[in-house]
């Protein structure tokens, strides 16, 4: 497959922003892959700072390194250069203090909804009774009550994704990473999941990084939207979303601030594709 190039340590900044309470700090990060034919720069010049409890959406065309960014934060991927810190700590390998949700629910077919959620607890060796209680609580929060013993093949796509979300939240991670979690759902279910995610975020207070293709979804959910452009993947602009905390799907969408946010993102993404 591909192999990572060794990071060039000499270019690292003597970062002054050490451990000042940020949930996620990405400092001048670049990711390069070496494929058979050529070197590919997936990400370059990426710096981002996310405060605890923020909801940050990441939008951009395919191949701009959105998912790569999440992999860096989770430690599943190491940067070629630059630094990634989680709660002031350098990310050196896969981190346990995060929750991850993928586009596909990635559930184990042979486990019921509840036991899929409890996989998180089993892997971590969490106390059983406590984990079970937390799982029930999360299933109630996401509307899975009554489906505890259903198997993935008996659940709709939206229900499966709810199970995946519960699994990601079981251990109360301070940071939740979501990689196009609703991309495979129909529009109606997607709206509903957006409303629920917003509510869950408010209830749990976790920091969320959400990668999405939907501009509306990005703005509706987030405090800030990271707009990325491809070749090489980098941050084009950070957009503050100045909408009230309490959001109503219909009302929020008709507010001028919502229109301003989505309009700006469209301009940026349009400009990126026009320059190709």
């Amino acid at each position: 497959m591909t192999s990572m190039m060794a990071g060039n340590t000499s270019t690292q900044r003597s970062s002054t922003a050490t451990a000042t309470g940020a949930a996620v700090e990405i400092d001048d990060v670049a990711v390069r892959f070496r494929t058979k034919k050529k070197d590919v720069t997936a990400l370059t010049d990426v710096s981002l700072r996310i405060e605890p409890g923020e909801f940050v959406s990441i939008v951009g065309a395919s191949g701009c390194g959105k998912s790569t960014l999440l992999k860096l934060v989770s430690g599943l991927l190491r940067p070629s250069s630059g630094q990634v810190r989680l709660h002031g700590e350098d990310v050196r390998g896969p981190r346990r203090d995060i929750g991850y949700v993928f586009q596909r629910a990635a559930l184990l077919e042979w486990r019921s909804a509840r036991r899929n959620i409890l996989l998180q607890a089993e892997m971590r060796g969490m106390p059983r009774a406590q984990a079970r209680e937390r799982a029930d609580e999360l299933m109630a929060m996401t509307g899975l009550t009554g489906f505890e013993d259903a198997y993935p093949n008996e659940l709709s796509g939206g229900m499966q994704q709810r199970v995946a979300l519960c699994r990601a939240l079981l251990h109360r991670p301070p940071v939740l990473l979501m990689d196009e979690p609703f991309g495979a759902l129909d529009a109606l279910t997607r709206e509903q999941m957006n409303v629920e995610l917003r509510r869950i975020w408010q209830e749990t207070g976790t920091t969320v990084m959400l990668v999405t293709h939907s501009i509306a979804e990005a703005v509706y959910l987030a405090n800030r939207v990271v707009v990325m452009t491809p070749r090489p993947g980098t941050i084009a602009e950070l957009i503050d979303v100045d909408l009230p905390v309490e959001r109503d799907y219909g009302k929020t969408m008709s507010e001028p601030e919502f229109a301003r946010g989505t309009g700006r993102i469209r301009d940026l993404l349009g400009a990126a594709s026009a320059s190709d």
Binding site: S74, L76, P94, R95, R96, I98, G99, Y100, F102, R104, A106, L108, L119, Q120, M123, R124
Partner: peptide
């Protein structure tokens, strides 16, 4: 599914 293995890594397994 490779994502399943990545998930397992984030669970510290």
């Amino acid at each position: 599914d490779p994502e399943m293995l990545q998930l397992s890594a984030t669970m510290g397994a």
